[in-house]
Amino acid sequence: MASNEDVNIDPAGEEVEVEDDDDLCPICRQLLHRPVVTECSHTLCELCMTEWADVSVTSQMTVVPLAERPEDFVAANIQAKCPMCRTMTSAKRSSEVEERVRRKYPGVYERREEEAVRDEAMKEVSVETLTVYIGNTVIPPGGEDERGLFDWEFFVKISDTSVVNEVEILLHETFKKPRLVRWKPPYAVRRLGWGTFIIRANVILKYGYSWISSDAEDTKYATKASLPLEWELCFDDGGSQARCQLKIKKESRLVRSSRRILESGSNSG
């Protein structure tokens, strides 16, 4: 039972829980659900933080040893711009806030839980964190190689390649084929050269997926489906690589369309 200050009496004589403004998410303006607290002291629903946080490649990119692989890295909280104050921050689930709103508004919170379960079942919108590596390895010129050419290989490694449609790699325009497309892993290109330059790569997701990132770009087929990356070739110490973590989401319209096709097939049978 909520306290007297948290309830009103409706015309039918039943108690109605009334939420304080401090207990509402500033994004959706509903009772906080699975609340998270940011380092900048804002409290939001977990889903609202996930969907509205401004995540950039630049803020996430960290140089790491070449030997590191996605399965070796334990995901930490992703740094992002707070939806409220736009400062760089991260967020953690707050069991303390969740327990408080559960006790204060048991009926409303129960309905929020039911709505969340129902929405997930209907929309099947999923959010996934991908670990992306970009970098290059290099073999320096041999003693007998008078040309002095470095043997380098540029790569993009992704923790879940099942959601990737293609990786477009753009080399310097002086190369014979400066644009290459890799439809399946390894997303890499190997060349000989004497100088470093910036390589651009666009990681394009399959239809129905989109990047939750301010750097993401639209393709002619989908919104926020392409993630542009840049890497300057490194010819020191065998090469180098950097790691970033970004979120993607599965679009609900694809799931609903698939469901209608399945239901139509079942009915016709």
Rank of each mutant, 00 (worst) to 15 (best):
P70A: 06
M61A: 12
D160W: 04
L66M: 09
D72A: 12
V164H: 08
T131L: 09
P65E: 15
T87R: 07
C45S: 07
V63I: 07
E68Y: 14
T62R: 07
I158S: 03
G107L: 13
D160S: 04
V156K: 02
S56K: 07
E120H: 14
N77A: 10
A91V: 01
V164T: 03
F155N: 02
V163F: 08
E98T: 06
T62A: 08
E46Q: 14
R118C: 07
Y109C: 04
S95K: 07
K92N: 06
C82P: 01
P106V: 08
Q79K: 10
E144V: 09
P141M: 10
V74K: 15
R118N: 13
P83Q: 01
E124Y: 06
M88K: 06
N165I: 00
I78R: 02
P70D: 08
P141S: 10
A76M: 05
S162M: 09
R112A: 11
S162R: 11
E71G: 04
A76Q: 08
K92L: 05
S95V: 08
V132T: 05
L44C: 02
E124H: 12
I134V: 14
K92H: 04
Q60A: 15
T87L: 06
T87Y: 00
S90C: 07
I134N: 02
E115C: 12
T89A: 02
T131V: 06
C82D: 02
T161R: 01
V64H: 09
P83D: 06
A53N: 05
R103E: 10
E153R: 14
D54M: 10
D145N: 13
V127D: 02
E46Y: 15
V138I: 15
C85E: 01
T87P: 00
I158R: 06
G148Q: 03
E113D: 14
E146T: 12
M84Y: 00
Q60I: 05
M49K: 02
V97W: 03
K157P: 00
V57R: 03
N77M: 08
T129G: 10
K123H: 10
M122V: 11
R93P: 04
V164Q: 05
R86F: 01
K81P: 02
P106L: 04
S94K: 01
A91H: 04
E128Y: 12
L149I: 07
M84W: 00
T58K: 11
F154R: 04
E128K: 15
T62D: 11
E71K: 05
V167D: 05
T89P: 04
D119C: 07
R93A: 08
Y133R: 01
